[in-house]
Structures are given as structure tokens and as C-alpha cells.
Amino acid sequence: EVPFKVVAQFPYKSDYEDDLNFEKDQEIIVTSVEDAEWYFGEYQDSNGDVIEGIFPKSFVAVQG
């Protein structure tokens, strides 16, 4: 069931425009499960802007 919160276990950096880049310990709200390997989610950056994109499930852990 979406949405749910995950926390980055590792930093994720990608050159693909659709990917969500983040640092370790970033909290991310997952709004869609793309497939067995990928989530789609969002978070607010330090400027208060909402950043969204896809990212690999293996880089995050589900909270709770």
C-alpha cells in the first residue's frame, strides 16, 4: 500500500533525468511501486522543493 516511508541506506547518484538522487539517511515517501526492483518517490530538499523520481529498492529500507 502506498504511500509509505523509506530511509536511504546508501547514497544514490544517477545521470538519468527520471531517477531520484539522494544521500544516505534521506527519508523518502514512496508514492508508487514501479516493479520488483524500483520505487517511485519524493522528498523535500533543503530549499523546500519537492524532488521526485525512480530509485532502486535495494538502496533503501522501509520504515516501521
Rank of each mutant, 00 (worst) to 15 (best):
V33M: 08
A61Y: 12
P56H: 07
Q9C: 14
P11D: 10
E52G: 09
I54K: 15
A8W: 04
Y16E: 12
I51G: 01
K13F: 13
D18W: 15
E37N: 12
S14K: 00
D25F: 10
E27S: 05
V6L: 01
A8Q: 03
I54A: 11
V30W: 02
T31D: 02
D49P: 01
G48T: 02
N47V: 06
Q44C: 13
K24M: 07
S58K: 14
V30Q: 02
S14P: 01
E52D: 09
Q63M: 14
V50H: 10
I54M: 15
V33F: 07
F40D: 00
K5Q: 06
D19C: 14
V50T: 13
Y12Q: 03
V62P: 10
K5P: 05
V33H: 06
G64C: 12
D49C: 14
Y43C: 06
F4S: 01
E34H: 15
E34D: 09
V6K: 00
W38T: 10
E23I: 06
V2A: 07
K13A: 07
K13P: 01
V30K: 00
S14A: 01
G48E: 03
F22W: 02
P56G: 03
F55A: 00
P56R: 04
W38D: 00
F4L: 04
I51S: 07
E23W: 05
D25K: 04
Y43R: 01
F22D: 02
E42T: 12
Y43F: 08
D25N: 11
A8E: 03
N47D: 06
E17L: 12
D18P: 10
I51Q: 13
D18N: 14
E37D: 13
A61S: 13
W38Y: 13
I29K: 08
G53F: 05
Q63I: 15
Q26N: 00
K57Y: 06
V60H: 02
V2D: 04
V33I: 14
D25C: 15
V60R: 00
A8H: 03
Q44A: 10
V30Y: 03
E52Q: 15
I51M: 11
V60N: 00
V7M: 06
A61C: 14
K5N: 06
N21H: 11
S58M: 08
A36F: 10
E42F: 15
S14F: 02
K24E: 06
V7D: 01
A61K: 13
I28C: 04
E42R: 13
V7R: 08
E42H: 15
K24P: 03
Q26P: 02
F4V: 01
V30G: 01
L20E: 02
I54W: 15
V2Q: 05
K24W: 04
K13L: 08
S58T: 08
T31F: 05
A61P: 01
P11E: 09
T31K: 08
E23R: 06
I29T: 14
D45P: 02
D15Y: 10
E17M: 11
D15W: 08
I54S: 14
N21E: 08
L20G: 00
E37M: 10
E37T: 09
F22V: 01
E17N: 09
K5C: 12
V7N: 04
I54V: 11
K57P: 09
T31L: 09
P56D: 07
F40W: 11
P11I: 04
D25I: 03
I54H: 15
V50S: 06
G53E: 01
K5A: 06
K57R: 12
G41W: 05
K24H: 04
D15R: 11
P11S: 13
W38P: 01
F10Y: 12
K24F: 05
E52I: 10
V50A: 06
L20D: 01
Q26L: 02
N21M: 07
I54D: 04
Y39K: 00
S14G: 08
P56F: 05
D49F: 12
V2P: 13
F40H: 10
A36T: 11
D35Y: 08
F22Y: 01
A36Y: 09
E17Y: 10
F59S: 06
L20S: 00
Q26M: 05
G48F: 05
W38N: 10
N47K: 08
G64A: 12
F59K: 07
V60G: 02
K5G: 04
N47C: 10
D15K: 10
F40N: 04
E23G: 07
Q26V: 05
W38C: 08
V33W: 07
E52Y: 14
Y12N: 04
I28V: 04
S58C: 15
V33C: 08
S46C: 11
F22I: 01
F4G: 03
Q9K: 14
